[in-house]
Each structure stands twice: as C-alpha cells, then as structure tokens.
Nucleic acid binder design. Structure first.
Lengths: 254, 254
DNA sequence: CGCGTCATTGAAATACTTCAACGACCGTGG
DNA sequence: CCACGGTCGTTGAAGTATTTCAATGACGCG
C-alpha cells in the first residue's frame, strides 16, 4: 500500500476555522502547518489500531471516521463517530482503547505529536482547547448512553439522521411548514448503523422504510437521504410520534 | 440545610494514594490540603446541578455519586457512576451537562477551583493527571456504550455487579473452584440500576433472582450481595451463560 | 452474464416491557 | 405494642418491540 502524503495547504482546508486550528492565532497555524501533512484513506482502511499508542494527532478534513471497540466474543461495536473538523488522538500519552477506521473516504490532516504538545505547553489556549475537546467527546458519549439506554428503534434512527444532518449543511428548499429540507449522505452502511445504534440491520432498514412511507424522509440513490420534515424527526426524538401520525406506539418508553 | 464543612485531614483519607492526590508529591499535597475541606452528603442530595458551572472540584472519599442527564420528556437517565477515589469536575471552565447526585451517603473532599488550576499550571504531572482523568472517563463511557448497545439484560446485571465488586475489595472465602467470594453492597436501588442499565426495575429484579437461583450470587439483607461464583459472572459477561447452566438463551446476541 | 455485497421485506420467535398484585421492611403515630 | 401508610423489591401473566431466520431484489464489478 502506498502512503500518499502531501504537504498541508491550510488555505484550502475546509476546516481551517474549526477544530484545533480555529483556536490558534495566525503564526501558530503557520508553525503547525509547516510540520503537518495530509493523507487520504479509502473506506474501510484502519487509521489507528485498538490499544496502540497513537504516533500523532489528526483532524478530519472530509469524510467520516468510526471509532470502534472489539468485544471478547469477536464482534465489534462502534462507540463514536468523527465528522469533519473533529480531532483524533489523546495528548500526553494516554492510549485509546478504541480503533479508528475510515467509514467513508477520508482526508486527514496529521500533526506530529511533539508539535502539538509543544504548542500546548506554550499556549494556555491550546492546552484548554485540547482539554475541552476531550470533555466534549465525553459529553457526546454520555448523550449516546442516553440514546442507547432510553430510546426506541425509531428514535435512534431519527437521532442518527438528525445528527448527520446537523453537520451536513446542504440546505435545499422549504417544506410546507417553513422548516428547511436537508439533503444528506448517510456515512454508514445499514450494518454499521445498526452497530452504532445498538440494533440489527433489519430493524434499521424497517425504521427507515417507515419514515419514508410517512413522508418524513425520502431516500435517493445509494445512501442519500432528503429530510422532508425536519420538525417531525425532531418530534420523534424529543417525544415520540408527531401527533399527525396517529398509529400505534406511544410516548416516553421505559 | 446545614452545610457541614470540616477541614481536610489527609492522614485519615481513604483515597490519599489514589486519584488526584496520588499523583502529587508531598509538599503539593500539603499545599492543597490547606485549602481543601470535607463535606458529607446524604443519599439523594444534589451535589452539582445540570448545566451549572461547577464552583470547584472534588474527590469522592466514601460512597457513590451518580451522574445523570434529564431528558426532554422529563425523565432522567444515569450516565455514569463515581466511586471512591474518583474525581468530579471539569477544569478550565468547561461546564458539564450532567448533574451529580449522591446515590449513597457520601463524603467528598472539595478543592477550590483556583488551587487546582494553579497546581496544574505549575506541575506538568498534575496537568497530565487531569487530562488522563477525563480520558479515562471517556473510556468508561465508551465501555458503557458497548454494554448498552450489545448486551442482554443478564449480561448487564452481571457487568454491574462485577463493576461494583472490582472496587469493593472485601474478600471473604473461597468457592470450590478457588475463585474468591466477594461481599459487596449495591450502591443503587433497583430503579436506579434499571436506569443505569437501560432496563426496567422488574427486569433487573428478575435477573438478580435468576443469578441467585443458580447459585452465582447470594443476596443478603438490604442491598448486600455475595458473589459466590465470580468466574460464572465473568463468563456471562464475556460470552453468555456458562456451559453448566444449560437453559435457554445462547451466545453473542445482536 | 454471474457473483458478491448490501438492502428490503415477510413470518415466526423471544427478550423485555407493561400492567398488576403482593410481601417485606421501616418509621410514624395512635 | 400494634395498626397504618410509605417506599422498595418480588413475582406473575399478557403484550409488544425487536430479533432471528429466511427469501428475494437491487447494485456494482470482473
């Protein structure tokens, strides 16, 4: 396998103002960029193996990275997703017990460990950013715990679509209620979604079909989805079925 | 309500060598202890409200603190548990979106925010400890995601008991296989356990009953439990039923 | 075209929930 | 002392959301 590394060109970076770089002042960015490099990964490629001490840090420029843990029985479970702008890696030598795998084609911007740690020791802002980054990850993980512990299959699927939509601002038009329609590409296969959501792939498929039948979403070619009624999706997540959809299943379960 | 604050007496602290203090050198401990204070909380008391920016940090000396999030529909979900030696609070101004409530009677050792942050800026070790602490929390949260996404009710209950047991080293005797029996006190009510494990209280109760019927555990007065066959518990978590227990349900589900 | 992977859909099985009743424990007040 | 009401835990029976098993269809690729 050929390692395609290219020098970092920050001016063209889609996440220059987000993530770590967004927290840096100009000359800090310049310093960091001189030692940074870009690399492409195709879907399925392993970025970081479980238990391994990561050599460096990186930021996700485009694509989606899945974080997974392998279980004693041999199966895997996705425990997190990194979208564009997110940061991967643990400063200060803490090794992560999850592996990182490209879910889609991915472009990463790598920074040498030493450069980041030096920057952190020089700048309180950087140090705080790194700290807050982990805190935010923890926050997200806790939200996921809520999802897995409390939500029905329908709510989980709706949550996932909303989550992806919130990071994927390709607005289309307006629906009847004035809420904007959103076009998005699901970054995961049904199997992976099931894995992430704690369901089976069949259940995920069925729930998507139900949402489609009700006109909440429309599914296009490959993995593209159009959210036709964002409000309805939100209502599903926050409570249960929207009042209009009268059939079956009621409110706050469990 | 009376605020019972007492000066910190480190020499009597049960977690002196664990947690943050374990990472400090002697004169750092001395410095910190001069501004630290102890406080008791009875079960159910709120230690830190959701969304509030915490005034300080604290370490759990005895007892168990539950971290919970409130859902849009009004219910709550426990997203984490802090046992003796664990550290509560986010340095550097990141607010936590979870509330902390005493699950049992609890003794906390509070440190002023300024003292901890000063210590962190002076000592790279302290800074790293704080960082690794959050990383570890994240790691634990991810493990819980695996539990909630992949495990059956039986496995969840078994996991919980093992988790408590691992922090509760009150060994008793030996069982036939040479594995040590462990006596422990469940820190949560059935309702809370159900909340934590993403089940209903009835299911939790039934699973505990089943484990008792099989002789894997014995339940005593109030919430005390004796783990009679630690190996069997572990086998349940890691795979499924131990081979001896032949009835129903098979291997790796979902 | 045929083959593999991925998604959809149906029917049967089941783990878990829901609803409901009951018993144990415990402090309160008669 | 015992009756009383509260919380908490247990157990049973019925219901249901989700899984499991199985078959079929859509798509991309050599």
């Amino acid at each position: 396998m050929i390692m395609r590394r290219t020098r970092a060109l920050c001016s063209e970076c889609p996440v220059l103002n987000k993530g770590l770089c967004g927290a840096l002042c100009e000359h800090e960015v310049a310093k960091l960029s001189s030692s940074a490099w870009h690399r492409q990964y195709s879907a399925g490629q392993v970025i970081h193996a479980e238990g391994e001490k990561p050599a460096s840090f990186c930021a996700v420029m485009t694509g989606v990275v899945k974080l997974s843990k392998s279980l004693p029985n041999g199966t895997q479970k996705i425990v997190g997703l990194l979208l564009a702008g997110d940061f991967l890696g643990r400063p200060f030598g803490a090794q992560s017990h999850a592996s990182a795998v490209a879910a889609t084609n991915v472009r990463l911007c790598w920074f040498p460990r030493a450069a980041v740690e030096r920057l952190a020791s020089e700048s309180r802002d950087v140090e705080r950013w790194l700290f807050n980054n982990v805190s935010d990850e923890l926050e997200k993980a806790q939200d996921w715990i809520v999802l897995l512990g409390r939500m029905t299959a329908e709510q989980r699927v709706a949550s996932f679509i909303l989550h992806v939509a919130s990071r994927n601002e390709v607005q289309n038009g307006e629906d009847g209620d004035g809420a904007k329609e959103v076009l998005l590409e699901l970054p995961l296969s049904r199997t992976e979604m099931a894995d992430y959501l704690g369901l089976t792939l069949e259940t995920v498929s069925r729930q998507i079909a139900r949402l489609r039948q009700r006109g909440v979403i429309a599914v296009g070619a490959s993995r593209s989805v159009i959210v036709r009624k964002p409000d309805a999706l939100l209502a599903i997540v926050e409570f249960a079925l929207a009042p209009e959809a009268s059939n079956s299943v009621g409110g706050a379960k469990r």
